[in-house]
């Protein structure tokens, strides 16, 4: 149905996905507490899950928009 790829967009979205994997880990280990309701908590699993979901979504999007071999 759609075969055209966009290497630049794929790269940006994949980088965003990788970044959110790292952010997810940082929230899970409590190293980051930005935008959390309890900054003093040891872990922020809810934010880690949201960041992970965004990361997966970005990586799927990158896979779809990357150029494919004919």
């Amino acid at each position: 149905m759609e075969t055209r790829g966009n290497p630049a967009l794929a790269g940006v979205v994949a980088a965003l996905g990788a970044l959110f994997v790292i952010i997810s880990a940082l929230y899970a280990f409590g190293a980051v507490s930005f935008a959390t309701s309890d900054p003093g908590a040891a872990h922020h699993y809810k934010h880690a899950l949201v960041a992970l979901a965004i990361a997966v979504a970005c990586l799927v999007a990158a896979n779809v928009v990357r150029p494919k071999a004919a």
Binding site: M1, E2, A51, I54, C58, V60, A61, V64
Partner: peptide, 28 residues
């Protein structure tokens, strides 16, 4: 990694729409 059917396109459109909404909501 390729869209070949209408429901696949709709799924990816929803993904494209959910990423910015989720991202901005997450941060702000």
């Amino acid at each position: 990694g390729r869209i070949e059917a209408e429901n696949e396109r709709l799924a990816m459109l929803l993904l494209a729409g959910t990423i910015p909404g989720g991202l901005i909501g997450f941060l702000l």
